[in-house]
Amino acid sequence: MTGRSGEQVTIVVADDHTLFRQGLRELLSTDPSFEVVGEGETSDEALELIKKHRPEVLLLDVEMPGPGAKAVIEQVAVSYPETAVIILTMHNSPAIVRDLLESGAAAYLMKTIARDELISAVRSVSRSRANVILSVPRTTLQSLERQHEQHTLLSERELEVLRLVAKAMSNAQIAVRLFISEGTVKRHLTSIYSKLGAVSRVDAIKKAERAHLIDGRER
C-alpha cells in the first residue's frame, strides 16, 4: 500500500516524549510501505520538518513545547495542504477533539489504540481525507454529538444574540445592534434558555462556551 504519490507513505512524528517517539518510529518502520522521514520534539521542529520533507502524514501530539496543536494544524492546512495531520494523544476532552478537528485534523486517535488501528489510519489519510477518523472513548463521542445537536438547534439569529449577551450588552443594546425590537430579543433569549437548558444569561453563556457555540476569548 502506497501513498498518493504512488511510492512509500512519508511520515513525520512529533512528540516530546523521546521513548514514545522512537517506539512509534520503530512500529511504523515495520511496514515497508511507510517511511518515517523525521522526528520532532517541539511544534516548531515539526513545522520545520514538514517544510523540509513535505510528508504525506504528520503524527502530532496535543501537548508539546512551542505553538499549540491547533496552531500547527492551521499552519499546515495553509502552507502544506498535501500533509494530513493525525492527532495521537492521551487527551480525550470533547472540547479539544472538536477544536482540532474543526481546525483541519484528518484523524484524532488515542495513544491506547492497537498497532493495526494506527497503521490503518495512516494508510487511510494518505489516500484520502474525505472522512475524518476518530478513535476516542464512547463518552467523548456522545458529548460531541450533544454539542452538535445544541449547535444545530440554535438559529443563526439566536447565536448572534448569544454572542452579544456574552459581551455584556443589555437587551436594549442588542436590539439596536441587530435592528430588532427589545421584545424580539427577549423572545430569542427565552428560546435560547429552553434549548440550552439554561436558567439565566450567565448560565446560558457558560453552557454555550462549554459547547463551543461561542468563543469566550471574544468577550
Rank of each mutant, 00 (worst) to 15 (best):
Ile87Tyr: 12
Met110Cys: 12
Ala172Trp: 00
Leu58Trp: 08
Ile192Leu: 09
Pro94Trp: 07
Ser5Leu: 15
Tyr80Pro: 00
Asn171Gly: 03
Ser33Ile: 11
His17Trp: 13
Pro94Gln: 15
Lys111Pro: 00
Pro65Met: 12
Arg25Met: 10
Asp31Cys: 09
Gly23Glu: 07
Ser124Met: 06
Arg127Asp: 09
Val97Ile: 13
Arg217Gln: 15
Val57Ser: 02
Val13Met: 15
Pro94Leu: 03
Ala121Phe: 04
Arg157Cys: 05
Ser170Val: 00
Thr42Tyr: 06
Thr30Met: 03
Lys206Pro: 03
Pro65Leu: 10
Gln75Met: 07
Glu56Cys: 07
Ala71Ile: 05
Glu7Arg: 14
Gly23Ala: 05
Ser128Lys: 13
Lys167Glu: 06
His188Asp: 10
Glu182Cys: 02
Leu49His: 13
Ala204Asn: 06
Gly3Cys: 10
Glu160Gln: 11
Val37Gln: 02
Ile174Lys: 01
Gly104Thr: 08
Ala105Asp: 14
Tyr108Lys: 04
Lys207Phe: 03
Met110Gln: 11
Asp31His: 04
Leu101Phe: 04
Val199Thr: 14
Ile174Gly: 01
Pro81Phe: 03
Glu117Cys: 02
Gln147Val: 02
Arg127Ser: 07
Ser194Trp: 08
Leu154Cys: 09
Thr139Trp: 13
Arg146Phe: 07
Asp16Ala: 12
Arg146Lys: 09
Val185Ser: 01
Glu39Gln: 14
Leu153Pro: 00
Gln75Asn: 04
Ile180Gln: 01
Leu162Cys: 07
Leu88Arg: 15
Ile192Thr: 08
Pro32Asp: 11
Ala204Gln: 01
Gly3Met: 11
Pro67Gln: 09
Val76Asp: 01
Ala95Met: 12
His17Lys: 01
Lys195Phe: 14
His17Pro: 01
Glu41Met: 11
Arg98Pro: 03
Val12Ile: 15
Tyr80Gly: 10
Leu144Asp: 05
Ile96Thr: 15
Arg115Trp: 05
Val76Gln: 04
Tyr80Asp: 03
Phe20Asn: 00
Asp15Cys: 11
Leu196Asp: 05
Glu160Asp: 15
Met169Val: 00
Ser79Pro: 00
Leu189Trp: 06
Ile205Asn: 00
Ala121Asn: 03
Glu45Gly: 06
Asn92Arg: 03
Gly66Trp: 00
Gln75Arg: 13
Ala114Leu: 09
Ala175Pro: 06
Ala69Arg: 07
Ser135Asn: 08
Phe179Asn: 11
Glu74Ile: 06
Thr83Asn: 08
Ala198Cys: 10
Arg54Glu: 09
Leu153Ser: 15
Gln22Trp: 10
Ala208Gly: 02
Ala106His: 01
Gln75Asp: 12
Gly216Arg: 07
Glu56Val: 11
Leu162Phe: 00
Leu58Lys: 06
Ser143Gly: 05
Asn92Glu: 13
Leu109Ala: 10
Ala107Lys: 02
